[in-house]
Design a protein around this nucleic acid. Structure first.
Length: 585
RNA sequence: GGUCUGAUGGUCUAGAGGUAUGAUUCUUUCUUAGGGAGGAAGAGGUCCCGGGUUCGAUUCCCGGUCAGACCCCCA
């Protein structure tokens, strides 16, 4: 793939450089085109004012044919594949077995897990009017598959994964890759005989995730999370902190616990005397014999599910009016007042100093129970951590890029995924599921890594590691010599001539976030290397510098946009220096 | 599903009741030659779709479609 961008439009003048197959059968000319037309109109829209999504579009990583859909272009596809390779490597090391399930799934499994009635599911009918969906995730299919194929405890523990496209009928897709209707996700599923084993599998995958983000050199934040519609009771989210993020996290400055706002209880600040005024909301339990009244400070967001541990049979599907009607109705029918109960849940911010609203039901003192120590509203920054009760919470916005769930038997039970144990007894397996949004991760990395000049990728997923380019006057043979010298590297050779100036080619490479620009120009046989983002010199590099027997100058912090340092190296040492520089990234 | 905004050459845009401005891009060509080069000539538009008002609508009105932002939702 050396000469993908090499040469002029005139095929007859192509130099004798090996030509690899073009991705997607794009013609030679199309390849030149995607490069040369990038950032059109950049004078009108300087890169630093563009959104990251626009940079991805204009530097031809992706093409957006319609809202929520993405075509991957040659440059973007390289990053897309490299990121998959990183994930694949770590999942394999964790013992994962890669598979690939169909993107289509028939209705019956989804009915068993009660997830068919979801308007984000892409549903359609075939010519025989049978219902299908495009998979938004694969718990149903994989659980069914494993239940069918695995029958003995000897098959466990089992970890399967796939990197495949997923579909969600988002009402309003947004932010391009961040929230598309079709996206790439790595989804993994673990199957274990016992809960202990399942929790070990959960830890195992989380460890693999840690390594993946370490490979990418990303400062990922792990947060306790609500498990949402997936269910289960243990769930971790992986986030990149960024101001554009849609998730809100709270971090405790004492115990360091990070939690998603959806799963973050908080205590009032020290010395808080109580809210001025309270509001309340009524709920009823599933047996319809207990009314639950939640009191919380006026103006705060009530989070009723925080009481789930204490009142597991609370029924959130019944609204306030219905709950009150049911309770009153039951009261009349039932002659015994004693079987009726009222539970008051009073948020800790509501105290004796607080104005309480009037009760809407008659009650009997003996049948009333009160919680006063369970926080039931969304946390806000500045309040005290509920975990350690010492630290103060601070707020961050973040982009969620990964999520792990311990599922217990949530899916294995309705889908009857069982194995026999040593005693030949049938037992339901324990599951976990684990996702990384691959396409979203690319967008998140682009977003968090970009600067005024353009994108900056972690070296391991940059579309190319190096752009090798010529200036307008250097002769082609010199470029060939250097290309040959560096042929073992992941190299993009931009030998376009004519109207493409050196500055033009440099800018394009830097906008695209290629880590190194190497210029074959007027100093030949000295070669210029520009480093896109700041790096730490390794000891190895410093040693080589001391031992060098050929020309090598380093210019720290040059006054060039998108360039942290420049090297002027003689051909003789070029490959060694490039190799060590890449290792510093 | 709600609220708002928008739709004009491939891309971005100006504009006004009388078929359209500028830039960019693309083609040919000359010059230039180290930080997104400059000139010359050329190419490229049923002004989103349907209806209404009008002598005449791309422009005004109504409806639709699509796109974007904010809600809502959300493994």
């Amino acid at each position: 793939m050396l000469c993908q961008l090499r040469g002029t439009v005139d095929d007859s003048k192509l130099p004798g450089i090996p030509q690899g197959p073009m991705p997607f059968n794009l013609s030679w000319r199309a390849s030149i085109r995607y490069y040369s037309t990038s950032l059109q109109g950049s004078k009108l829209f300087p890169v630093k004012e563009l959104t990251t999504h626009d940079i991805l579009l204009q530097s031809r990583f992706i093409y957006q044919p319609a809202a929520g859909l993405v075509h991957w272009l040659p440059l973007g596809l390289r990053t897309y594949r490299k990121l998959q390779a990183v994930i694949r490597k770590r999942m394999d090391q964790a013992g994962g077995l890669e598979m690939e399930l169909s993107s289509l799934s028939s209705k019956n499994l989804w009915e068993k897990t009660k997830r068919w009635d979801n308007n984000e599911l892409f549903k359609f009918k075939d010519s025989k009017y049978r219902d299908y969906c495009l998979v938004p995730t694969c718990e149903e299919e994989i659980t069914n598959l494993i239940g069918d194929l695995c029958s003995s405890y000897k098959d466990l523990p089992l970890l399967t994964y796939q990197i495949a496209r997923k579909y969600r009928d988002e009402l309003r897709p947004r932010g391009g890759l961040l929230r598309g209707r079709e996206f790439l996700m790595k989804d993994a599923y673990s199957f274990d005989l016992t809960k202990e084993d399942a929790l070990r599998s959960f830890d195992n995958v989380n460890e693999a995730y840690r390594k993946i983000f370490e490979d990418l050199k990303l400062p990922v934040t792990v947060a306790n999370a609500d498990s949402g519609s997936i269910g289960g009771d243990l769930s971790l989210e992986y986030h990149l902190i960024h101001k554009s993020g849609e998730d809100v996290l709270f971090e405790c400055n004492s115990c360091q616990t990070v939690s998603n706002v959806e799963k973050c209880q908080s205590l009032p600040e020290k010395g808080f005397k109580g809210a001025k005024e309270a509001e309340c909301q009524y709920f009823i339990n599933k047996d319809r014999n207990t009314l639950i009244i939640m009191y919380y400070p006026k103006g705060r967001t009530l989070t009723p599910r925080y009481i789930m541990d204490e009142i597991p049979d609370i029924d959130f599907s019944i609204d306030e009016e219905m709950a009150l009607a049911m309770f009153k109705n039951e009261s009349e029918e039932s002659s015994s007042f004693l079987v009726k109960e009222i539970i008051r849940v009073i948020d800790p911010r509501v105290t004796s100093n607080t104005n309480m609203p009037d009760l809407k039901v008659l009650y009997h003192r003996n049948s009333m129970f009160t919680f006063t120590d369970i926080p039931i509203v969304e946390a806000v920054a500045g309040e005290r951590c509920y975990e350690c009760e010492k630290g103060t919470l601070s707020e961050h916005t973040a982009i969620e890029v990964g999520h792990t769930f311990y599922l217990d038997k949530k899916y294995s039970s309705p889908l009857d995924c069982t194995v026999v144990n040593e005693k030949n007894e049938s037992t339901i397996v324990y599951m976990g599921c684990y996702g990384i949004g691959v396409s979203r991760l690319i967008a998140a990395i682009a977003q968090t890594g970009r600067d005024e000049v353009g994108l900056t990728w972690p070296q391991i997923i940059a579309p190319y590691q190096i752009t090798l380019l010529s200036n307008k006057t250097s002769n082609e043979e010199n470029l060939d010599v250097v290309a040959e010298l560096l042929s073992s590297f992941d190299l993009q050779v931009d030998g376009r001539d004519g109207k493409f100036s050196m500055g033009h080619k440099l800018k394009q490479s830097k906008v695209a976030g290629i880590p190194l620009q190497i210029i074959v120009g007027k100093h030949f046989p000295l070669i210029e290397i520009e480093v896109r983002s700041p790096i730490q010199h390794s000891q190895e590099l410093k040693d080589l510098y001391k031992r060098k027997t050929w020309d090598w100058e380093i210019q720290e912090s040059p006054q060039t946009a998108g360039c942290s340092e420049k090297h002027l190296v003689h051909l003789t040492g070029l490959a060694q220096v490039v190799d060590l520089l890449l290792k510093c990234l």
